[in-house]
Design a protein around this nucleic acid. Structure first.
Length: 457
DNA sequence: AAAAGCGTTGAGACG
DNA sequence: GCGTCTCAACGCTTT
């Protein structure tokens, strides 16, 4: 049976002739090789610097050798995670497609296998209710995406039935503000592993077979590759969910602005498109990818100049599909901190939504207070004459906030601030993509490293 | 219109 | 003549 294992390296600091390590890897889907450097040791045992050097070298060598047999993508790219999608595709082309999924276990598989089950099982190990978890069920939003494998497979089937839609799928052409999702919303199921990536991949491959179909990066296959793209980045780049100590992340002098951050999080920026998206996020737990673009750009480089790490926290809390690497990676992308560098391309919180929803029906759905505004003012209600606001039963500044910033002004200013941040990056002599990723000094970590644990005390 | 950086490519230096 | 390295130019970037 597939399982996870921990291999505790104590004295056998080697890969060769290591039966315990081999046994740990057998049918193992997740291996955690560990060595315990007990801080007690240096405090209580006198060990010469020569011996320490020997141990450190042994651990480094072990670490390198373990990496060699792991992380195939990253290894294929000379030990560095691919920083562009094209590069990832090149690497994947040499690795080939993923393995076929294995079939689900049946009663037959369980024939000779017992599950010890006592009467008190439910009571002791049963799944807790929301109340028992300290959650308030009255705060629940609409139940649009029920959890679980059964729903995942049902949803997959439903989507895969539309073969023409699947073959023509181009992500940038789907709509961020349609009233029902314009994409599959399989991401929460992927995040929790209710749906296997390989199952999804091969279902698509079967549908594509012999037909004309879209390709990565915009196709559905392409979406799965984006996931791999950020997974390799998240696995291979230290401090990937932070700006500081993150080698691919542009160091930006973000503001701390509690009021702006709260306004953004609580859907009262005064920009209906932004606030509608943030409302959908809070109530339903899923928003379209391009809607994420719009609010992420607004929070960071576009308008509010607040660190992407703050946005990351809010998404982590509210998104059903929040996935560590994808969340960190996409926030860096949208804030032009990494992967994407054309910071002068700023989403307009007014114009962007209009492209696919002239009427503002999406805004009216999530911000019903604005529903009586005519289409020409729905994206910019503060521009409407008083009489229009009265007729709509919504006075701007009283019933719905005025814009907290003036987009035209702040976005221009922020582009200049981005430009300065990039100039500092290339200007400061040191940090220019070091040759080997291992030899970067001066990198500060926030999480305590092993070394930190040995410093002081 | 231009703003940036990644990765590739091709030319040239070097051994 | 050949392989390796360095450098600058260029094309591309999910909207």
């Amino acid at each position: 049976m597939p399982h996870r294992s921990i291999h505790w390296f104590r004295k056998g600091l080697r890969l060769h002739d290591n039966p315990a390590l081999l046994a740990a890897m057998k049918d193992c889907e997740e291996l955690h090789p560990i060595f315990i450097l007990d801080p007690w040791f240096p405090r209580n045992m006198k060990v010469s610097v020569n011996r320490w050097r020997f141990l450190i070298e042994a651990l480094k060598d072990l670490d390198e050798n373990l990496k060699m047999i792991n992380s195939r993508v990253i290894a294929e790219n000379n030990g560095k995670p691919p920083l562009t999608y094209v590069r990832l595709q090149t690497v994947l082309a040499s690795i080939g497609p993923p393995k076929r999924p294995c079939s689900a276990p049946t009663k037959e598989n369980m024939k000779d296998c017992r599950t010890p089950w006592k009467g008190s099982y439910e009571e002791i190990y049963g799944i807790p209710t929301l109340e028992e978890l300290g959650q308030d069920p009255t705060k629940l939003g609409p139940h649009l995406y029920p959890g679980g494998e059964s729903e995942a497979l049902r949803r997959l089937d439903l989507n895969m039935k539309r073969t023409a839609w699947v073959c023509n799928f181009k992500k940038p052409e789907t709509e961020p503000n349609s009233l029902t999702p314009s994409t599959t919303v399989l991401s929460p199921y992927m995040k929790f592993g209710c749906l296997s990536t390989r199952t999804f991949y091969w279902r698509l491959a079967e549908i594509y077979h012999g037909k004309k179909h879209s390709s990565p990066p915009v196709s559905l296959h392409g979406q799965l590759l984006w996931r791999e793209f950020f997974y390799t980045a998240g696995a291979g780049i230290p401090n990937f969910n932070k700006m500081e100590g993150n080698s691919v992340c542009v160091q930006v002098d973000w503001d701390e602005n509690k009021d702006y951050l709260e306004a953004w999080r609580e859907a009262r920026t005064g920009y209906p498109f932004i606030d509608a998206i943030m409302t959908q996020l809070r109530t339903e737990g899923w928003i379209h990818h391009l809607a994420r673009h719009a609010v992420a750009c607004f929070l960071t480089r576009g308008d509010l100049w607040i660190s992407w790490e703050e946005g990351q926290k809010v998404f982590e809390e509210l998104l059903l599909d929040a996935d560590w690497s994808l969340n960190a990676g996409n926030w860096q992308w949208l804030s032009a901190s990494a992967f994407f560098h054309q910071f002068f391309r700023v989403y307009s919180p007014v114009a962007f939504g209009k492209k696919t929803d002239k009427n503002g029906d999406y805004i009216k759905k999530y911000l019903p207070i604005l529903k009586k505004f005519p289409p020409e003012y729905i994206y910019e209600p503060w521009k409407s004459p008083r009489s229009v606001q009265e007729r709509a039963g919504c006075i701007i500044g009283k019933d719905y906030p005025k814009p907290i910033v003036e987009h035209e002004t702040v976005s221009k200013h922020n582009i200049q601030r981005m430009k300065a941040a990039y100039a500092r990056r290339s200007g400061t002599s040191g940090e220019q993509a070091p040759k080997s990723p291992s030899n970067k000094k001066g990198v500060k970590r926030k999480a305590p490293s092993v070394a930190d644990l040995f410093k002081k005390k």
